[in-house]
Design a protein around this nucleic acid. Structure first.
Lengths: 224, 224
DNA sequence: GGTGGTCTCCCCCGCCCGGGGGAGACCACG
DNA sequence: CGTGGTCTCCCCCGGGCGGGGGAGACCACC
């Protein structure tokens, strides 16, 4: 491996040129391409297989957030990581951007040394945010104590109880769970009762609340 | 103001000495004191009023997390901000630490330039994390879309329906809601039916899920 | 005065769910 | 071989809930 391969995505040629010049000459970093919008970026990622994408947010045809979502989609991600580059750090954009799967979020006025550091960290599998973004994220995080205790001990649940648990917290009825697991409804009810006892709750609603409050929700299982 | 005043908290004298030497000679940064444990640190913060505290985690008498909680407690905080310094970045510690009110979380093996940058950013009201910590935080954050899309339009709900909604998503039964709002259970059931229609869901479990997925949960209303 | 919305409460019904118990089968551990 | 745990399913029961309809009272608007 002869360096970190980066792809620059921005609709303004001048910005692309500027970024390219920032990384030109930095050891171990090679700019392998530029894309003028999100749609092209998704295509170019498949073609060029860069290690890191520097992604603008506001672009025609497809914005950077949607492009990032597609690039980071687990089903066909090949290791490419994305750093979002934007002018603004308003909360909505930040929080939405961090959900897209990006590994970094930097303001465009960041010093070039920060850009370089970010690329290197992200290529190594770590993440880096602008300080003001970090502040917002911590603030949002701290506002919800539930976030911070991921994975309450579900260890005492048996495998089957866990199966039922996962479907229950998605909003399925006992009957539906029975069908999905190919079980009798009686069996499901039995497992559900054990869940109540073990989790110390009263009914299925409180199981759902318990799950969310303890960060046990896997969104990919949620019904559309 | 003639510089950023920092307080160094660590139970190992050698670490304190090392940190002090890092900041010695850096323009605009003055070490105003050292504390060997959390209890002393809380006292020293009141006495010395530093701008930034560099806080170790594992210490006798009182650990760094509890000390940080006390220092950052809103009722008597005077602007002092805390950077947690630790050897490890295991998830439990990270998430717990970020809830204490700290503005930074750095590993002890961070380069001195990072330490300096962190102190300056934090003193300016921003925040800074080690890249591996940032990665964990983003990962945890991204796991919950509910955090980031606050306020799906509940505007079409009437005031009374909203009252019922808030209690329902806390896990209360129709009977309990009726008692709390001083209503007949029939009335509550009526409102609940309207909720189902307006939110497009089937039962109370799915109302709870809807609420969480749309960031509509006010944790302060949750039962203990 | 009529119309529409909200809030309140009533009736009915059927079903799913909470809760209790028991039982047979399998497997692992000692 | 017994014991314990898990998984499966059964019985019973009562009550809460989902779903439908209707009705009276208040208020605002036109």
């Amino acid at each position: 491996m002869d360096g970190i391969r980066i792809l620059i995505v921005d609709d303004q040629p001048l910005v692309r040129r500027g970024l390219r010049s920032v990384f030109e000459g930095l050891p171990g970093i090679v700019t392998v391409g530029e894309s003028p919008d999100g749609l092209d970026a998704v295509r170019d990622v498949r073609r060029l297989r860069p290690d890191v994408v520097l992604m603008d947010v506001n672009m025609p045809r497809m914005d950077g957030l949607e492009a990032t979502r597609r690039i980071c989609a687990p089903e066909r991600n090949n290791g490419t990581r994305v750093i979002i580059l934007t002018m603004y750090d308003r909360d909505e954009h930040v929080f939405e951007a961090l959900r897209t799967g990006a590994s970094g979020f930097l303001l465009k006025d960041s010093p070039t040394s920060t850009l370089e550091q970010a690329v290197r960290e992200v290529a190594a599998g770590e993440a880096l945010l602008s300080p003001s973004v970090t502040r917002r994220l911590i603030g949002e995080f701290a506002r919800r104590p539930s976030l911070s205790t991921p994975g309450a001990d579900l260890g005492h649940l048996t495998d089957r109880e866990l199966d039922v648990f996962r479907l229950l917290v998605c909003g399925h009825s006992n009957q539906e769970i029975a069908r999905m697991l190919v079980l009798g409804e009686s069996t499901v009810k039995s497992h559900v009762q054990h869940l109540y006892q073990k989790l110390g709750v009263r009914d299925r609603v409180q199981v759902v609340i318990y799950a969310y409050e303890n960060g046990l929700i896997d969104r990919r299982l949620l019904p559309a």
